[in-house]
Simulated assay, not measured.
Amino acid sequence: MSLTLLTQLADLPASQWDALLPDDQPFLRHAFLSTLEESGSLGKGTGWQPEHLLWEEQGEIRAALPGYRKSHSMGEYVFDHAWAEACQRAGLPYYPKWLAAVPFSPVTGARLLGDRAFAAKLLHHVPDFLHQRQLHSAHINFGDAQTRELVAAEARWLPRLGCQYHWRNPGYRDFQDFLDTLMSRKRKQIRKERELVASQGFTFEWLAGHQLSEAHWDFVYACYANTYAVRGQRPYLTRLFFSLLAEKMPQSIRVVLATQNGIAVAMAFSLMDGETLYGRYWGCLEEFNRLHFETCFYQGMDYAIAHGLKRFDAGAQGEHKLVRGFEPVITESWHYLRHEGLFEAVADYLNQERPGVQAWALEARASLPYRRDGE
């Protein structure tokens, strides 16, 4: 039995990796993670160096923990910048660290892959791996319930809570059926927003991966990159990422194009599985009133209803989602800090932070626009 390191996912057959996955969520599939690497979105010069952990017994891979050596904290969506800054002030090293997560995507899902017992053995050896590789900490972001149970059985892993907003489809017949569940004022607000976009002459077209040409991908990337350019930042993903992903997993890709006067001006890129639509990237070439809400939220809700999907995960943050029916969902991450002083300081901080996150989720739920009894 042994813990081994995989620094390039292409060195492992897709069938072996995918056999470890518990469901059909696209983000941990070999096709998605290897595309990030092969497209240059990860690797040298990016601060994301693939270092996937494998557990092998009797010549077979029994468990895996996809992960990355990090030299910064960007693109993670669980923010530890303050911890790094505190270390810098104290003259302590914080980087490099090791992170188990889906790069650039705050999506909850399995992290410890494969048989539960073997996954537990793998996790138990992570501290040794950190010591051998001279890594100062390990982090597991947006894990599922099994991840929580396995981490809870180990020492020194600190839990951290976050909050996202997801929309659930209990089986609406159409968008009007959804609107009928809302309070009158909120229902009118959403109708007004959609009517305002329609009055500007916008039409929308949904395309699956196999329907998208290279010209489409040029446009998608231009919109995606522009969301970073307006903030003076470089995009995480390369143009090649989109073309390679379309070759490897077109069945999981959905793109909605917003067109005005026959010219495409905005898009939203999503992935999907059998139950969930995951809205990931949005971008526009020009700014239009309320176009973001229509393209990123209402179009996705329409699509989920039309295709019988149970959930629409539109990404991190965004308290403005509450008034549009997106419900607060608690997320979890776990942190292993080797330095005793940092461990104690962060443990104290998280103990104070946790009740605030839980209280906010309860408060946010009370602010949802759905009708109460008698309304």
Score class of each variant (00 low, 15 high):
K310P: 01
T108L: 01
T276I: 08
N351C: 13
E193L: 10
A10C: 07
V126E: 10
T46A: 08
A153R: 15
H131I: 12
A110G: 09
E76Q: 00
Q164Y: 00
L33F: 08
L362V: 11
W167D: 03
V323C: 11
R29D: 02
Y228M: 02
K121W: 00
V256D: 06
G308Q: 15
H139T: 10
L113K: 07
V107W: 01
D115S: 12
H292P: 02
Y370N: 13
E286M: 00
T4A: 14
F204H: 07
D177I: 04
Q211H: 13
Y349R: 10
E353V: 03
E214L: 14
T227L: 02
Q317S: 10
Y221H: 07
Q352I: 00
F326P: 06
Q189H: 13
G201S: 06
L6G: 07
L92P: 00
H72A: 02
T35N: 09
P159V: 09
L135T: 11
Q49N: 12
W334F: 15
Q211K: 10
R69H: 05
A264M: 00
L150W: 03
Q16M: 09
A64T: 05
Y336T: 07
F343P: 01
Y172V: 09
Y94L: 07
A304N: 09
Q25V: 05
Y221M: 09
A152T: 11
A63P: 03
A14R: 12
L322A: 02
A268D: 09
A101R: 04
Y236H: 08
L207T: 05
V102Q: 11
G67I: 01
R89Y: 07
R371F: 06
D128W: 07
A84Q: 07
Y281V: 05
L36I: 05
V197S: 09
L257D: 03
Q251H: 08
I140K: 03
L92D: 12
G40F: 04
E85N: 08
E287G: 06
V323Y: 01
A19H: 11
D177Y: 08
H124P: 00
W48N: 05
A208R: 14
D273W: 09
